[in-house]
Design a protein around this nucleic acid. Structure first.
Lengths: 399, 399
DNA sequence: GAATTTAATTTGCACCGCGTATAAAATCAG
DNA sequence: CTGATTTTATACGCGGTGCAAATTAAATTC
């Protein structure tokens, strides 16, 4: 069991203060004291140490209160953007998106590579990823030595603690130790994480869950992912495993089990259409959903039917997730949202039907169609979280 | 956010030491130090305080090591059984089971009341529960004043933090503040908890999950419940809500959604048989499953069919739960296990079919047919946990 | 009975957060 | 401009905490 010592205590409070500055900054010491419920003297000590370490900056303006307020003016504190640099990446079957951010999470440079990488051998993928990271870092006017962490996110079942990829739709191989390989290539500590977890953290930090400490996110991309925020932390299964919603079973069908991915996965929705040459081309290039959107607007019955079926399956699944986690908010993201009203309406209807009466009203459904950049920014946030959480070198005496 | 101060630090380590003594006692200070990774100094300080408070006892024998070992002999420490008394109760539709335990969790007295209470007004149920608690306490040779906590467990959707019952199959009413009522009646702090959570903690403390800190338990009783142990703690949904597995949806059927409870709930399995007068009588008295067991052994086709369908549904659900939580062990408990091979085999088959390949082998399925007493003991453990966790009066200086 | 070995406690120290007192920096009144 | 007022931020001392080293305690071995 984890033992509590003064160091742990300090690191908890340090993280608490730093996180408060990140979320509400620029913010004065008094306000930090109110929010964290730490005494002003402790806040002063911690912020002093954070200032010494260069993690935060002072700013002598920006007090929101009435200008004509008496007394010593508050000194505003904010996160020092230059304290660290990280790279976040979203790696999907048909594209890779990179983002370099500063310590605040602001994007310094981003890069989208529309390359189809599934079915490529792992060494090729690693080459491309390495190249993308390096290029994006150069675009930000930096060198790899300036980068403190890299976080690569991808769909699939991933063991966060070890960086072990159990399975991913973009790899032919299974059981890959990608973290180790990439850390060596980039000579920078590299984290592997589920893409759904990254976008979950993105919403917690920058998006539609900033006000919540419990939340569930469902990502509807090529595969279906789940992120659970529980007490301001990502909830990972035992062993740090990420979830793969597509593996969920919705009953027995004619030929064996009926998985969610077979009804609501990207290939399930678009697959039936592959006869059409132009559409197949779009799918291959990762633009299937955009194309589908156009067809649906043109009243393509087959596609509308697929969207309705998918929406139904997802709606039922969300109800099940809510039954298990009872989050106050469920955020839906991903390319499938582009399917539009037929999909969303059937999803909402199925959810309303399937949610147990005793849980009616506990969860609100929110749809979000952020760009891929936001996912990459989330990946960067995963990397940043590790930096924020780490005690940093100077947990020692403030000298 | 929770602020870390010396008091928190101490209470963490105190709980850690006390829990170690409970789990591995009788145990010496050195061994506690090894297990908790606290220094022997700290362990001595904490155990000293625990001894002062009368929560633990010394015992000058029982060192398991080789008798002919040199040096000062170790003093063994163990939990003081007399430090507290609690009452745990399992309240089900057709019976109530009570257990009085000491601080160690050992049962001092138990009482089973085979009364059918569902469809009774809440005041009647409260009367019966109060009576049962009082009787069981007297049987243990105690008075209510000697009891530190009471924990009542029942099926349904329960908010642990507030003791609020959102819905329960044994109550006609919904949204009941049972904890408040019973606390007043017994003039003892009374906790309301899901029965599934209680049996989960029972297995963690006394049963088949003593060696694990992550685990999932599925209870197949009148309703289907879920307990998740995550990092040695009960995982409760946001807001402290308990889960009701029966509300999970397994797809769309002819008339609306197809809930698990409609295929694997007790009434779903036994319901079809109610034509038979004797069987109906057994069901009414809460012996439906025992009766069903006999009929299955006599090759009753209808019942076997129902059992197979139920097993299939539960097997799929377990696969889904494993997909989400990836626990190293899944424990199945409850009356439905009495259905025997037809049920279990179809459950195992469905599970094997539905578990995603990437998760094959991460979870082991364990069946457990403990008696109702064990559930009541688990309820007592829930009460005890609150006592263990509470800083107790004397967190202050050891004097 | 002395040496040895292991267990538990005592002592001294560094650190933490907090309350109080103090210093600092602005506005307001005249 | 000067002094009173108000608010913010920082020293200082206190009690608490865990840990390392030294000390005491209690047994076995020679």
């Amino acid at each position: 069991m984890k033992t509590a010592d003064p160091e742990l205590m300090r690191s908890i409070n340090r993280l608490s203060v730093l996180d408060t500055i990140r979320r509400f900054g620029p913010i004065s010491r008094v306000e930090i004291s109110e929010r964290t419920e730490l005494s002003t003297t402790t806040v002063s000590a911690i912020t002093g140490s954070l200032l010494d370490d260069g993690l935060i900056l002072t700013r002598h303006e920006g007090d929101i209160r009435n200008e004509a307020v008496r007394g010593r003016p508050r000194v505003m504190l904010e996160v020092n953007p230059d304290a660290a640099r990280v790279v976040g990446a979203k790696i999907a079957a048909s594209r890779m998106v990179f983002a370099v951010t500063d310590f605040r999470g602001d994007v310094l440079s981003k890069l989208t590579l529309p390359i189809r990488i599934d079915r490529q051998p792992i060494a090729v993928i690693a080459d491309l990823v390495e190249d993308g990271v390096r290029r994006c870092v150069v675009d930000a006017g930096l060198s790899l030595e300036d980068v403190d962490r890299v976080c690569l996110t991808l769909p699939g079942v991933i063991e966060h603690r070890t960086g072990h990829i159990r399975s991913s739709p973009i790899f032919r191989e299974i059981n890959i130790d990608f973290a180790e390989d990439m850390s060596a290539r980039l000579s920078t500590r590299t984290i592997i994480e589920s893409d759904a977890h990254a976008i979950t953290l993105a919403h917690h930090w920058f998006g539609k869950a900033r006000d919540l400490e419990d939340m569930v996110l469902i990502s509807l991309e090529q595969t279906l992912g789940l992120g659970v925020l529980h007490g301001n932390k990502l909830f990972r299964g035992a062993g740090g495993l990420s979830h793969n919603l597509g593996d969920l079973v919705l009953g027995m069908g004619q030929q064996g089990v009926n998985r969610l991915s077979s009804q609501a996965g990207e290939s399930a929705i678009l697959g039936e259409q592959q006869a059409d040459g132009r559409f197949a081309e779009a799918v291959r290039l990762g633009r299937g959903m955009t194309h589908a959107q156009a067809l649906i607007k043109a009243d393509d019955d087959r596609l509308i039917g697929a969207a309705v079926r998918a929406g139904e399956a997802v709606g039922l699944t969300i109800a099940n997730i809510v039954t298990l986690f009872a989050p106050p908010r469920v955020i839906l993201v991903g390319s499938s949202l582009a399917l539009g009203e037929p999909f969303l309406n059937s999803l909402r209807d199925a959810y309303a039907l399937a949610i147990p009466p005793s849980l009616r009203g506990v969860s609100e459904l929110v749809f979000d169609d952020s760009s891929d950049d936001f996912w990459a920014q989330g990946a960067a946030a995963v990397a940043l979280y590790e930096l924020y959480e780490s005690p940093w070198n100077t947990t020692g005496p403030a000298l």
